[in-house]
């Protein structure tokens, strides 16, 4: 098992390096710079600022300097929030985004998993078509639209839930979590339905029925574990996607998370902030993919013993 993990970690180093390199040069290719926006700055001041942040050096030298800092875990100073480092900004925004992502993931697993399993038990009947159609709608409706709709219905017409904020009023975390989770709930519903259908047609399900077990025990004891493996393997990419894709929801609901910093940084040409957030998310994506792969492999006894984790 450790060999497998070590191998995957090594594999991810070049991936992250490529992400850094491409992002680094791409943001610099974009016209404008961190100090060329809004009001005109006196050229001397601008030059001084650029010198202070090392922007006057040749591009390649800047790149090497950035890599050097990164190796020490230093993502550099923010160009737009003077006096604050990118590390601090991420540390401030990430816990909020992570919390939102976690709730959204729980929503996605809860709703999606149940819908998928329910649908798989009676394929091609109303019990299958209805949840699956809803799931299809969930995939098609972007959170950009889902958020305002939920706000209108539950916030304004029904007045059940607050429509913005994070941790200020009780219940203000519910709508953002559902908005963000709905798309993934739909994917998970489809994955778990497919996984369960596959497993339910296996011979060992027939064996379980031949033992005389009631159908719910057949599903829960025998089918669920195998049927959920594709879902578990999807959780890593899903959580990473939730984190990096949360900025729309954060904007709609006025949540002070990482996503909003990220988008603002892009508008402001805040080079180090864009890079820092990108690298941070890239590492997270790699880590969560690895975690979910390990979990999925661990759930399969054959793979578990193959990787030497003991049976």
């Amino acid at each position: 098992m450790w060999r497998f993990i070590g191998f995957r970690v090594l594999q991810s180093i070049p991936v992250i390096l490529v992400v850094i390199t491409v992002t680094f040069f791409l943001v610099r290719l974009a016209p404008g710079g961190p100090f060329s926006a809004e009001k005109a700055v006196i050229p001397e001041v601008k030059a001084a600022l650029e010198a202070q942040y090392g922007l006057n050096l040749p591009m390649f030298q800047q790149y090497l300097a950035y890599l050097g800092d990164l190796a020490h875990g230093d993502l550099g100073p923010s160009f737009k929030y003077p006096g604050r480092s990118v590390n601090e900004l991420i540390a401030a925004g990430f816990p909020v985004t992570a919390e939102l992502g976690l709730y959204a993931l729980l929503v996605a697993i809860g709703i999606g998993g149940i819908a998928g399993v329910v649908a798989s038990l009676r394929p091609n009947t109303a019990q299958d078509y209805i949840p699956m159609s809803v799931a299809m709608i969930g995939i098609c409706v972007p959170s950009l639209l889902m958020g305002p709709i939920l706000i209108l219905v539950f916030g304004i017409y029904l007045e059940w839930l607050p429509v913005s904020g994070w941790g200020d009023i009780p219940g203000d975390k519910i709508l953002p979590a559902i908005t963000l989770g709905s798309t993934y709930a739909a994917y998970i519903a489809r994955l778990s339905r497919a996984g369960m259908l596959e497993v339910m047609s296996q011979d060992y399900i027939r064996t379980a029925r031949a033992k005389g077990l009631p159908e719910w025990q057949v599903v829960v004891r025998h089918a669920l574990r195998g049927g959920m493996i594709p879902v578990v393997a999807f959780l890593g990419p899903a959580f990473a996607g939730l984190l990096s894709g949360s900025f729309v929801v954060e904007t709609i609901f006025q949540i002070p998370g990482l996503g909003r910093f990220y988008v603002q940084a892009a508008f402001n040409r805040d080079y180090t902030m864009i890079l820092g957030a990108t690298v941070f998310l890239a590492v997270l994506i790699v880590v969560f993919n690895l975690l979910s792969d390990i979990l999925a492999a661990w759930m399969n006894p054959r793979l578990r013993s193959q990787y030497g984790g003991g049976a």
Partner: peptide
């Protein structure tokens, strides 16, 4: 019928590779 299955009448299937649950 379920009370009879597995208690009074039991079955052995063709392919032992696929008839046992690999996760248990």
């Amino acid at each position: 019928l379920r009370k009879i299955r597995g208690r009074d009448i039991a079955m052995v299937f063709q392919d032992p590779m696929t008839c046992l649950n690999p996760y248990m």
